[in-house]
Amino acid sequence: MSGFRKNRPVDISSARFRLRSLERTDASARWSAWASDPDVMGPLNLVPTPLSVPGMQQYIAEHDNESAYLVGIFLRSTGAHIGLYNIDCDLMHMVANFSLMIGDKAHWGHGVVNETRAALLDHFFDYRKMEKATGTPNARNFSAILNYKAQGWKLEGILRQQVKSVTGSHRLDQLQFGMLPADWRALKQGTSA
């Protein structure tokens, strides 16, 4: 792969999925349905809200493919769009913060997250030259927590009552998981960093 250039969209593949930066034409009723589904949005501590096509296009446009990426997850077999990653990069400190949503519930529990995130970790460490990756699920996002642990991310801390719950007046803890390039390479090689 050639050297890193600014503002270059992501377009990579794993065994089952294509991961590419979303474009205006990816705004769809399918995506809007995910955003209004309590099952999808609840674990993310987001209020289910249908999105308009112009609203989705505006959201896509806010991601510059330099400090902010909105990467769609597409089935290689059919091209269907099933979810997305939001990856915010602190270019001063070279830290990439990952968050994601698998909108198509038919694909929950089938290893989508860790397969796609492995490809993205490779890409952001090796190509975008990030020096650390983080993930910050809230403590009620049980599936996300399991996935971070299963993939070998290190729990770096519990931020107590860090965020307001959208379902009530209480506050939620937020967990911080981290991955360093050396950790990731060691995990892939089956050794400890």
């Binding site: 529990g109 049980f142 599936s143 996300a144 399991l146 996935n147 519990i158």
Partner: peptide, 23 residues
């Protein structure tokens, strides 16, 4: 898997009658 895990955690909370702590 992650889906089973989420269902299990909710079942534990239902049985205990409270939310689990982060720990």
């Amino acid at each position: 898997d992650s889906l089973v895990h989420a269902q299990l955690m909710v079942a534990i909370e239902d049985h205990l009658g409270r939310e689990l702590t982060s720990d």
